[in-house]
Design a protein around this nucleic acid. Structure first.
Lengths: 249, 249
DNA sequence: AAATCGTATTGACGTGGATCAAAGGGGTCC
DNA sequence: GGACCCCTTTGATCCACGTCAATACGATTT
């Protein structure tokens, strides 16, 4: 199907089961820190996989909450929409990251998750995850870390939205992407944006025109090479300097 | 000793142990949904209580993470500080709310928690909480809900920071406070702010002058009566209207 | 009651980013 | 391969909020 490897251990069933134990994302995902036997237990829990085409919803705000999702391939955005139509992108998620944690609190999802490209997720029924994590300490702990990481990430976004200027926000955004691509074995300096300027703007609390202008400015200053959605970071320290060298606010 | 009740059930030890089972905040806090026997188990886990004087830190960014904290009395703010000195208030917490969840992900706290008034917290050693929540399903679930609620709250703040104008932000802030005071048995319409204009501004991504002007505007329009930190909400529907009736972004 | 200090209000002015508008790619679907 | 549409870039203007500054208020101390 995708970046799968042929399973060395023959699967018991006929279908090519893409097990956690065989997944190259396991270091970034829920199985992190589990021993092989525990990973197998987790495997049994991952009920199914689901393909989501570009622009389609994985879940919508208001949907009953039943499972969380680990991204196997592709990428997503999450957003919240107000009655008056305003919307805010709350995050962009890539492979190995977990979606749906917002739904636990009220038994209903509180945001929309939309695929930015054709994608695939592992469906993790939440009741069973809680059950297993009562038995497997390391799974429990890893799950708590993942939730906590989301909270810390959100605080970073608040910082960004609350007290940075446009170019700082974009620099922070690019550096964050770069770091996450690196963690996945891709180039730190060259990547393809899966989201539009408008979506970046929504995430960063800016208008798309402002995002575009900031990109142009970075390009003029030799910090990045921008060609539509293709980004090449030329001067990482320079971008970091933009982040810190501001006495304002 | 504060809003405590004399325990009807005599404590086994001499000291006045303010147990979860006797706490009037239990419906808002970690014990929610537990049966009496389970609450007793949780009780044993709550190692100690800690008093924090106004302006003092409960924990600081970088401190090793060992416990989470439930607020028994008083209130707190959390903030993150950048190297260049800029800071952002990420939340205001009141009784029954839980502090410290940010620390789980990296074993170190990633923000500061500072008392806004003389306060008291219940110290909940995290290792033991995980242990007990492997045994007590309802505790596990309630804890997950609390973490998830924090994520949902953060998304709301992102919405606020990313796509609302100054007066909308302040209206949302006041309505949120009102609702939380109500849940604690206080007046929905009359309360005392424990934070300064500057802190409100930091939280809302505004300067203190802008916060002050927005308060004045609300007062002119008869929505609230403001006298320094004392707030009386006169027209709740009016405040809600401010929130929704904006086509901008 | 006076002195002090942190906090809040109010005014005048400046600016970063929003808004409005037009033109220039690139990808996609026949 | 051409037409269409969405996305992006860039320019001109506007405005909400920030900045700077002065004053006022209230709590606390002496």
């Amino acid at each position: 199907m995708r970046v799968q490897m042929k399973s060395a251990v023959p699967a018991t069933t006929m279908e090519i089961k893409t097990a956690c134990s065989q997944c190259n994302l396991r270091e970034l995902c829920l199985p992190f820190g589990l021993d092989p036997r525990e990973v197998d237990q987790l495997d049994e829990l991952v009920g199914s996989r689901r393909k989501i085409k570009r622009q389609q919803h994985l879940y919508r705000s208001g949907d009953p909450f039943e499972a969380i999702y680990a991204i196997r391939a592709g990428s997503f955005k999450t957003d919240v929409i107000l009655e008056d139509g305003r919307d805010q992108v709350t995050g962009f998620q890539m492979t190995g990251e977990v979606l749906g944690l917002d739904g636990i609190s009220s038994e209903h999802h509180s945001c929309n998750a939309i695929a930015l490209e054709d994608s695939e997720v592992c469906v993790i029924p939440f009741g069973r995850l809680e059950e297993l994590s009562r038995q497997v300490e390391s799974l429990q702990h890893q799950f708590h870390k993942i939730m906590s990481r989301e909270i810390v990430r959100d605080h970073g976004v608040m910082m960004l939205l609350g007290s940075m200027r446009a170019e700082e926000r974009l620099a922070a955004f690019l550096l964050n992407l770069s770091q996450r691509f690196t963690a996945r074995g891709f180039s730190p300096s060259e990547f393809h944006l899966r989201m539009t300027r408008d979506e970046i703007g929504s995430y960063l609390g800016l208008k798309l025109e402002t995002v575009s202008r900031a990109f142009s400015r970075f390009q003029e200053e030799g910090l990045v090479a921008v060609q539509q959605k293709h980004i090449r970071i030329l001067d990482t320290p320079g971008l970091k300097r933009i982040l810190n060298h501001h006495a304002s606010n």
